[in-house]
Every structure is written in C-alpha cells, then in structure tokens.
Amino acid sequence: MRHSLTLQIGPATFRIGSAWRQPVEELTRLYAGYPDRHDAIADFTVRLQPTGPLRRWVRPSILITGDHGLADAAPMSLAHGLLAAEMGMNLQMALGWRRHLLLHASSVEKDGRALVMTGESGSGKSTLAALLGERGWRLMGDEFALLDLDSGAILPFPRLVSLKNQAIGVVEDVVGAQRMGPMLQATAKGDIRHLVPRPDAVARMAQGAMPAMLLFPRFGHDAAIRPVGQGEAFMRLTQASTNYVALGEPGFAALTRFVTDVPACAMDFPSGEAAFDMIDRLWEDGA
C-alpha cells in the first residue's frame, strides 16, 4: 500500500497499510516512543483502504480491514483516520489473537501486582486507567488485558489510550496537551482523543504482573462497593473476552484460576477523586 508502518504493542506486531498519508503520519508521531519495527515480520496486517474506486479522492472514506475484517464494517471519514487505524488493530486482536486470553479490560500495576478493570464502554475503565497511570501506577493498557495461559500473569497491551467525551478534558488537565492526539469530533462514539502513555509504560510493555484485584467500575452513580462472587466474575469475564471460546480448555483453566485467585469488586463512583479513594482503600485491604 502507499503508506505503511509497523508497530509493536505489547507482544503483538501490526503492519498497517493506508491508502492515505494522514493516518500513518499521525500514528508515526504518536507512537514515536515505541520500538522501531519497520523490518519486522508482523503478526497482523491492517489495511485502511478506500470503500470504493473513487473514495480515495472524492469524499474520502475508509474501509477498515486486514487479516480479519467485518462484512458490515461502517465506513469512516479520513478525518478519523487515526481512530480507524486503532480500530483496525483492535479488530485484529479481538478476532485473531490466540496466545493469551484476551480480556476487554484496562489494567494498571503497582509493586509488581496488577489491578484489572472491566466494564462496558462508558464505565470509566479507560479514564481510570489513564488517570491512575499519572498517579504512581504503571499503565498496562486501556482496552485489552492479556491473561497468560500458563503463568496466570496479566501482560500489558499499552496502545494509545482512547478517551471519550468529558473524559478528554479531565485527562488533558492532568497530562497537558503535548501527550494528546488530535481531537476527533463527532465519531460514532462521540468525541475521541488519544493519550500517549508515559515512557515507562512503553519501556516496560514486555513486563507482566500477577493480578491482585478485579474491579467492575461504573461511572455516574453514588459511591458504592459490592463484592463480586467467583461465579459472577467468571461469567462476566467470558462475555468480556473475544477469544475465550476459541482457546477452548486452556482458556477455561486460565479464567478459572483467575477468578479463584483474584478478589473481585463492583465499584460505583461519581467522580475520579471518589474512585481513587475507594481504590486506595480496596488495594490496601484486599490486595
């Protein structure tokens, strides 16, 4: 393809090709601190290609595809090219990754132990991970937590953190504008802006940590904490995993071990400050 680059994020390598210059330029800038893998053999190919013969030039429209694609993928405008590339990488991971149990969860690490947070889009798991990553925790990832099938460790997948709507301003106030990507307005999920993880999160992206706590955060409710039983945690995590079925018995064994060893809580929170207090307390008590 005309424009391309190869990125490594955690254990996965992506070869990204684009019909347009802009998405690759934006990726190059935002992933500048990541390892240079331009001559690597990639695990996945991602393609950003025109949706039709004329759509390279006339009202440019991106089809996100690659090794794995969706038949009914929604076309994206070129202005959202960076988001398209990120979605393309997520798609390959979600549909193609087999080396770990993939949990749709964010994760952060402190003292060699990992806090895993999972929930629906809008639950606040990305924002919490981003903010904890600026408060003495190491950001391991905001989208996927990789559960090692043999060791039971959580492995990082520290791609750009995808922040939505009001979370954008909250995080920008903390980290400053120079670590933020372009503002992508009016995407299918509202406004989106990406955050570049701190250099130590990138430098240590091959380093896993044993999980010490599982949280189900829920933003926008009065502060409340409820313990979650192993059965419920197991069922919710199978739904939060895109490759649980594909992995078969090893996936079942890894997830069983995870919910048996790791205490789990549901945490409702009205604000970031409230969440930090609750997490500090839970971490000191339980983990």
Partner: peptide
Amino acid sequence: LPEPVQPILRDARMDAAR
C-alpha cells in the same frame, strides 16, 4: 522458520484443529 513466524503458524493450526 524465523522466530516471529512460528507462533503465527502455531495459532493457525490450533484454529484449524478447533
């Protein structure tokens, strides 16, 4: 085979077996 190729092919075989 180059080292990065091996897990890619191992994953593929596992998928086909399933």
